[in-house]
């Protein structure tokens, strides 16, 4: 040990310390320049920090606003009863159930199709005209306004496929809207899987499908789930796509089959706030419903995040 120190001192450490001192001296000499640079850097980084903080601040304000105004509405009755007296009293249970069913349904539709599309595009398709067309389609799908999805759902699922205004029609419409989000995130996740994994697997006599299923997909899963989280949050909060396809103004009964029409939280807020007979009197119910919706969405996100981090941990 001592010998080691002596050797270090002789060969490396002392010259190294001297070098550091040299650098220090130099810094002092050029302090003016460094000062100006440092201020510039300080300003830029403060701007960045502020921009990042805006995200958190916005969320805090929204949540605070909802909690402050909607808190009083949250009672056991509110969460477990159907609306009563022209929706001025009672609860929102049918809406909660409806939104959960719609979100889960949308993910059940969009997740398999989205992930399969991403796998096809990234792992199998050869670059060419066909692929460019598909990509163009997906990108445009992502840009279609949600109300257009609503009308499409009405024309295609409700009328043409004769599904009627129903949970399944709404879930399919929301699923179609969520697809591009899931495809985008899944492709990104697949791209992040190193090619060396694929080569190693193929080099061991695995088929392309085995490679995809056993090596590529597990590595990409956390990223794909992020996409699913984004998708499910979007689906849960949308009003326009379900307005003509699934949601109704009022129904006291809970859905008994996927062909039933249902109530949903976002549509309920919209109805209470614009079309009810007692708009002012139901303000606290509106905020309460919004609070439930945001808690529900966050809860769904949290579940997915927990699952994702468990996957990540298992891999590393």
């Amino acid at each position: 040990m001592d010998e080691q120190i002596i050797r270090n001192t002789r060969n490396g450490l002392i010259p190294f310390i001297r070098m550091k001192e040299d650098i220090k001296r130099k810094n002092i000499r050029h302090k003016k320049i460094k000062g100006r640079r440092r201020i510039m850097q300080g300003i830029i980084f403060s701007l960045f920090r502020f921009s990042a903080a805006v995200n958190g601040i916005a969320l805090v304000i929204i949540v605070y606003f909802l909690v402050a105004r909607g808190w009083t509405a949250i009672t056991w009755t509110f969460l477990t009863q159907a609306p009563m007296d022209s929706m001025t009293k009672g609860g929102i249970l049918p809406c909660i159930i409806g939104t959960i069913c719609l979100s889960v349904g949308a993910i059940l539709v969009a997740f398999p199709i989205g992930v399969a599309s991403a796998i096809y595009l990234h792992e199998y398709a050869r670059p060419g005209r066909m692929m460019r067309i598909i990509r163009l389609g997906i990108n445009n799908l992502a840009g279609v306004p949600s109300i257009v999805f609503g009308l499409f759902g009405l024309a295609f699922f409700v009328v043409w496929l004769k599904l009627g205004v129903s949970m399944v029609a709404g879930a399919l419409t929301l699923g179609a809207m969520t697809l591009p989000v899931i495809i985008g995130a899944s492709e990104e996740a697949l791209r992040a899987v190193p090619d060396t994994y694929r080569e190693a697997s193929l080099g061991l006599g695995a088929t392309k499908w085995q490679t995809t299923y056993r090596v590529v997909l597990p590595s990409a899963m956390p990223g794909i789930l992020t996409g699913a989280i984004l998708g499910i949050s979007r689906a849960a909060g949308e009003t326009a796509p379900i307005m003509f396809t699934a949601a109704v103004f009022y129904t006291p009964s809970l859905p008994s089959s996927i062909f039933d029409e249902i109530m949903a939280l976002p549509y309920h807020i919209y109805v209470l706030a614009t079309a009810g007979t007692e708009i002012e009197a139901t303000r606290h119910l509106q905020y309460g419903t919004a609070l439930v919706l945001i808690v529900l969405v966050m809860g769904l996100n949290l579940l997915a995040i927990l699952y994702r981090s468990r996957l990540r941990k298992r891999m590393s």
Partner: peptide, 16 residues
Amino acid sequence: RLRVGMVFQKPNPFPK
């Protein structure tokens, strides 16, 4: 590829 195995430049064990 079963008969002709391969070892790559960078160690690339699977995350398993």
